[in-house]
């Protein structure tokens, strides 16, 4: 059964422009279509949640937006002076790297995807700054400390490598690295999946505080509807590579319209 997502009036009250605008993203792996016709916007300071089961394409969308993998088709723009009017999917390798280092932060579910597990935690964060061109030791150390403190990482463990840290602490190092350059866009891929419930709550709390203090546009992918309810302003529901429903987070979770979303919401314990 297909239902077109309901359409609303264009924005009349909000004068801000979206930071991120993506149109008709498509990605196939061989004969498998992972993402098809996906469009989204994210405003500065806003958090968009993407939900769906494994294989729905939600993580692929995040990888496309992080420019980790080439898209087959689509248009992707960020409202930043240095990239005005450009489809970011067409950037050359050099500028793609520059954009990712300076404007996009990402936190993966698996810490080893985002961190060097044997290097010191402070070093992992400083590495991001070095990639962006910072060379002075004092500024590096101060910026890394600042970013780790904002992620509520205990600074007496600065020299410990992520390998010896708990899962919650590893996520804080990833977060510190992600926000070190004060990016415009923060991508979170199942950031608390696999953590104990109590640790998960602490990490969510840090994310909420950061959002309030830094007004970063954020996209969070999770299959955990509790995480989405806590973090997201708006939600997009994906299934089979398509968006089946989108809306305000409480509306999608409390009054889901699409049969699939109803099933997803009611399957929750």
């Amino acid at each position: 059964m297909t239902l077109e997502p309901r359409t609303f009036d264009p924005p009349r009250l909000s004068d801000g422009r979206p930071l991120l605008t993506a149109r008709e993203l498509r990605k196939t792996y061989g004969r498998v279509t992972a993402v098809e016709g996906v469009s989204l916007e994210v405003y500065p300071g806003e958090t968009l949640g993407i939900v769906g089961e494994s294989g729905s394409g939600k993580s692929t969308v995040l990888r496309l937006l992080n420019l980790e993998e080439p898209a087959d088709a689509g248009d992707y723009r960020l409202d930043l002076a240095a990239y005005a009017g450009e489809n970011l999917l067409g950037l050359d390798r050099y500028r793609r790297r520059e954009l990712r280092v300076s404007q996009i932060g990402i936190v993966y579910q698996q810490p080893h995807m985002g961190l060097r597990m044997g290097a010191s935690s402070g070093g992992n964060v400083a590495e991001r700054l070095i990639m962006a061109g910072e060379r002075r030791f004092a500024s590096l150390r101060a910026a890394a400390r600042d970013s780790l403190a904002a992620s509520e990482f205990p600074l007496d463990r600065l020299d410990d490598p992520p390998r010896v840290l708990s899962g919650g602490m590893q996520q804080r190092v990833q977060l510190a690295k992600a926000i070190a350059m004060r990016p415009a866009l923060l991508l979170l891929d199942e950031p608390t999946t696999g953590l104990d419930v109590s640790v998960q709550a602490l990490v969510l709390d840090t994310l909420l505080r950061l959002r309030r203090e830094r007004r970063i546009a954020t996209i969070v992918v999770s299959h955990d509807l509790g995480v989405i309810r806590t973090l997201a302003d708006r939600v997009m529901v994906m299934r089979g590579g398509h968006v089946v429903e989108h809306g305000l987070a409480d509306q999608v979770l409390d009054d889901p319209q699409h049969p699939y979303t109803q099933q997803l919401v009611h399957a929750k314990l």
Partner: peptide
């Protein structure tokens, strides 16, 4: 900031 129909206003307007 102006008149809107709450039944069909854009999500960003409702959020605001």
């Amino acid at each position: 900031h102006g008149e809107v129909d709450l039944a069909r206003a854009a999500e960003v307007d409702i959020a605001l």
